[in-house]
Amino acid sequence: MGWLFDPAHWSGSTGIPVRLVEHFGYTLLTLVIGALIAVPLGAFVGHTGKGGFVIVGLSNALRALPTTAVLILVVLWAGLGDFPVYVALVLLAIPPIMAGTYAGVRAVDPVTVDAARGVGMRESGVLLQVEIPNALPLIFGGFRGAALQVVATATIAAYTGAGGLGRFVFDGLALQDFGQMLAGAVLVALLAVLVDLGFAGLQRLTVSPGLRPVGTGGKR
């Protein structure tokens, strides 16, 4: 663990803070792009109930896609840089987010949805005011799963020369520097835990207390 606590490794353009920020940047932007694609798709299919098999099939097919191969292919086609990293990671992030959103919207009690229409909500209102808020726990589940995978897999970006904490793993491997490799792995795991905690906090703030497991307040 000596490598990790050496002050020399905590400064400069290739130091731990810079790599950490790079890694977090990959994760955040990947999740944002993934959400923009996967949430509307999952929500729409969940709401209409049509094309569920497409969502499930697409999710499974994307899950089977090896991220390494996607990364290398896009590098060979489009050249080095951050773009191939984002393509590979976004494809990784889409299945859990899409599946979580779809499952969340589908799982809303049909009686509740019936009531929403019955009191005169329009379809957009049914989706945005009732289905999405009630689906939030499962949507967050999808996001947290995606975040874990993206943080862990963003390590591979370094294989094609991009930044992030993966640099320590691959540089360590090249130099047979076990301390550096271990430091990289520990930092990735630490970042994953922090990102997950961040999502847990966000979830507490945005999910209605009415949806928490019963018994956390008031009488039953």
């Binding site: 009690d109 009686v111 509740t112 019936d114 009531a115 929403a116 229409r117 019955g118 009191v119 005169g120 009732v130 808020p133 009630n134 939030l136 999910v207 209605s208 009415g210 949806l211």
Partner: peptide, 17 residues
């Protein structure tokens, strides 16, 4: 529907509100 009251089995209350 906004002009007609509607009550259903199991109430169908919005659990998040």
């Amino acid at each position: 529907r906004r002009g007609i009251g509607y009550v259903i089995q199991q109430a169908g209350l919005f659990p998040h509100r």
